[in-house]
Write a protein that binds this DNA or RNA. Structure first.
Lengths: 265, 265
DNA sequence: ACAGGATTCACTCGGTTAATCACAAAATCA
DNA sequence: TGATTTTGTGATTAACCGAGTGAATCCTGT
């Protein structure tokens, strides 16, 4: 009995194989064979919890994918390719799939011209928001204004800031805590720091970004009603000179940045 | 109307997205948004052939994956990330998945020791067979004997042969046609050529491989009964000093190789 | 030929997803 | 303000695929 199903390698492997499109039986059969090296239907069935009579279907599926070979004796014996080969095989398959997808998406002819962005868009979830932030940072040409709490300063964001600094983009940073300030200063010495202008101290702070005065993003952390210990991040963003969110944030930033140090309100 | 559904970029993109685990509706919705840039439920529904009332679910699914943002106006408006971002996103996700899988497979503790291979295994399908051949070539330490028809000399095989030659493995090659011989000689000058000993001229020839005198593989091309124009490749292989297939082939090879030039039979 | 096991095949059941419909909320227009 | 259209959400039905089970067939060794 594998006691704790969480992060048990067997469970993890089966899960990934299913994600790659294998049936449940095939995935479990493959993992069993991986442990056995070689085995018969009965052996597989006993340790993989797959009905004996269906091991054959599963092996056929695995054979089509080039993951398992068969010995046509009685009883049949099955052999799985090595763990390293499996990894390489899937890596190549996935590379091929992503290439196909990218090519196909690139070949789609647009129905109409992609006009200027209007309105304010919302994104939910930390990974998606980080994606959007990084994307904005990568398109920056002149100026980046960025403010963030520590926990949201992931590596990719810092890397993007660094890359922007290297190509001559003016960077103005603010953190909500001295810790964050220090870390930013250390990683990106080119950046100009300014005092945090986050005035709503009881608001669960998130991030605040403006790029080239034309693209802005604001996020906040909200307590998740389901799991009380975790926080959910939600963000809004807008793009374009005349975008309402952009206009508002640009006004705020130029006002605060112009009057650095004056802390009245 | 997209007339020919074969290799139509739209169809291809939808197919790949479904392979990556998106529902049919989500995949079609995303492709539609990719063409539109931004759009409402009705616009998506009209060009994506998705029921209007289901576009919202599809978008929610896409939003969870970070592929689409929403504008909470009336009517709602949807925005899809760029084709390039999509490609990068999936590339990273797949890299993560393969890494997880490789780690999990490596952490599987074997049930019993992987004993010496016995018996003869069969592999079906050209890609799987090529995989096996390359794997054997990569483990070669002393000597490779390889014979193949031209159509099976894919790039990866030649590359593996080249790599083996570079690390000092003695390579003995034979092709079934002078063309193949010439190509091999050109690509891998270190290799020693010998006359083909494929005597069964009416047999649909495939390949024949022996590595270090301990691993052997033989394949033949058989006409496919379904599609008469294509050929199916099927192979058998064995490993280990005492393996019957290995013993037989080793005997043949040493006999023929020892008596090069004598063409009686 | 027979017994035991191995393998294949046919079928049922359950869950998921596609697809349709009904309805409530909101907005536009008269 | 009231009627009509449009938008969004939820419930319901239908079709499909995969898991699981059991019976029928085949093979092997005695």
């Amino acid at each position: 009995m594998s006691s704790d199903p969480i992060d048990d390698p067997q469970t993890a492997a089966i899960e990934q194989l299913e994600q790659f499109g294998l049936s449940a039986y095939a995935a479990r059969t493959f993992v069993a064979l991986e442990k056995l090296g070689t085995g018969t239907a009965i052996q597989v069935s006993s340790i993989a919890d797959v009905p004996r009579t269906r091991v054959y279907d599963a092996v056929a599926e695995l054979g089509d994918r080039g993951l398992v070979d068969v010995q046509h004796t009685v009883p049949k014996e099955f052999w799985a390719i090595s763990a390293e080969s499996t990894g390489r095989k899937f890596e190549r398959e996935m590379a091929h799939r992503t290439a196909t997808l990218t090519a196909a998406l690139g070949d789609l002819e647009p129905v109409e011209s992609r006009d200027e962005q209007r309105g304010v868009w919302t994104v939910d979830g930390r990974p998606a928001i980080t994606d959007r932030v990084v994307e904005f940072l990568e398109t920056a040409e002149d100026e980046i204004v960025y403010m963030s709490v520590e926990e949201l300063l992931t590596g990719e964001v810092v890397d993007s800031l660094h890359a922007a600094a290297d190509r001559g983009v003016e960077i103005k940073l603010a953190g909500l805590s001295p810790t964050v300030q220090a870390r930013l200063q250390e990683r990106i010495p080119e950046a100009e720091l300014f005092d945090s202008l986050w005035l709503w101290s009881d608001t669960p702070a998130g991030r605040l970004l403006m790029v080239d005065g034309t693209e802005t993003l604001v996020s906040v952390l909200i307590d998740d009603e389901q799991s009380s210990d975790s926080q959910q991040e939600t963000a809004i963003w807008g793009a374009g000179e005349t975008n309402s969110l952009v206009v508002v944030l640009k006004a705020i930033f130029t006002w605060r940045l112009g009057a650095t140090g004056e802390e009245d309100c």
